[in-house]
Amino acid sequence: MADRLVDYRRKRDPEKTPEPVPRQRGRPGRGDTFVIQEHHARALHWDLRLERDGVLVSWAVPKGLPPDPKVNHLAVHTEDHPMEYASFEGEIPAGEYGGGQVRIWDRGTYETEKWSDREVKFVLHGERSEGRYVLFRTRGKNWMIHRMDGPAPGWEPMPAGVSPMTPVRRARLPRNPGRYAFEFAWEGRRGLAAVEGGRLTLRDPAGEDITERWLRPLGGELGSRSALLDGVIAEVEGVEVYVVFDLLYAEGRALLAEPFDRRRSLLEELGIGGARWQTAPSFPGEGAAVRAAARERGLPAVIAKRRDSPYIPGESDAWLCIPI
């Protein structure tokens, strides 16, 4: 039988990459192994690999598996990989083929329903992926991947066209500060950032795309985690920074009806922090202290957010803007 790993070996130098580069054709597995690897190469993508005839037949999927049968995703057929690659995680050196970090995103077993040169139907049984999919060839190495059954239980699409929630002005702090979380009022361009498949799009309140090139890497930082973020592009120490203060969608679930405390907790779990993006600090019940700190920093106001309030598009008295 022909050696199906010739192309794989030709592209890799075992002296320079930690990837497995077996001399032999490859050891056979059980015939039903699959792995999905998150690959932070020049462009973030996910590698879907299905065991077939002793190798891992592979596709690079730029946006990951589609969660919705209404949307297909591009899948680019790549060279077969050795079975040893099913357990590979590591950093491929810069300058080498596929340079970047590789992490196992999911793995498990699969069932083959159909396999031909133009169409592959299969059922995944993974730790994160369950369901029926079909890969179908469109042109050359380009294929598409389609989810054949319904969305995963509980999954819902990301809300579109959401208007930002805005505060009403009040002269004084609320009398019951324990019911509120207090934040600094950030001045700048308001924007909702939609992140799916590692790609980020920032839109202003009118729905216009205002995505800056420097902000796009935040999508890659979140990886496979889908999110709809609310924040503002503010100038911090002379540098534009996207300051995030709310989370409206995460991991296939809309959060607009959730209370602020719950949304805030999920936002903090995302761990958004860096030189050009950060999570805004929030202080439950600390109205007077936050107002004093804002005055020292020369900020114009503080925002009081009722902790039990859902996200209400448009102006709402659940959020209060109190000038210094």
Rank of each mutant, 00 (worst) to 15 (best):
V6S: 07
V6N: 03
D7P: 04
Y8C: 08
K11L: 13
D13S: 13
P14R: 10
K16C: 10
E19C: 12
R23Q: 13
P28F: 05
G29M: 04
R30T: 15
G31M: 08
G31R: 03
T33Q: 05
H39R: 02
A43C: 06
W46L: 09
W46D: 03
R49M: 11
G54K: 05
W59H: 01
K63E: 12
P67Q: 13
P67G: 10
K70C: 08
V71P: 00
V76P: 00
E79T: 13
H81G: 11
P82G: 08
E84D: 15
A86S: 11
A86C: 03
F88L: 06
E89Q: 13
E89N: 04
P93C: 05
V102K: 01
I104S: 00
E111T: 15
T112W: 01
R118C: 07
R118H: 14
K121I: 14
L124A: 13
H125L: 06
E130I: 15
G131P: 05
Y133H: 07
L135G: 01
M148Q: 11
D149A: 09
G154T: 07
E156D: 00
P157D: 05
P159D: 06
S163M: 10
M165L: 07
M165A: 15
R169Y: 01
R170M: 10
R170H: 12
P174W: 14
N176D: 14
N176W: 08
N176C: 07
Y180I: 14
G188C: 13
L192S: 06
V195T: 01
T201C: 02
D204A: 09
A206Q: 14
E208M: 08
E208Q: 11
I210N: 08
W214D: 11
L218S: 07
L218Y: 04
L222K: 00
V236W: 01
V239S: 03
V243E: 05
F245D: 07
D246T: 09
L255E: 01
E258D: 09
E258T: 07
E258V: 07
F260L: 15
R262Q: 12
R262K: 12
I272K: 00
G274F: 00
G274Y: 02
A280P: 02
G287H: 06
G287S: 10
A288Y: 09
V290T: 12
R295Y: 03
R297C: 06
P300L: 12
A301N: 04
I303D: 02
D308Q: 13
S309N: 02
I312K: 00
P313T: 05
W319Y: 07
L320S: 04
C321M: 15
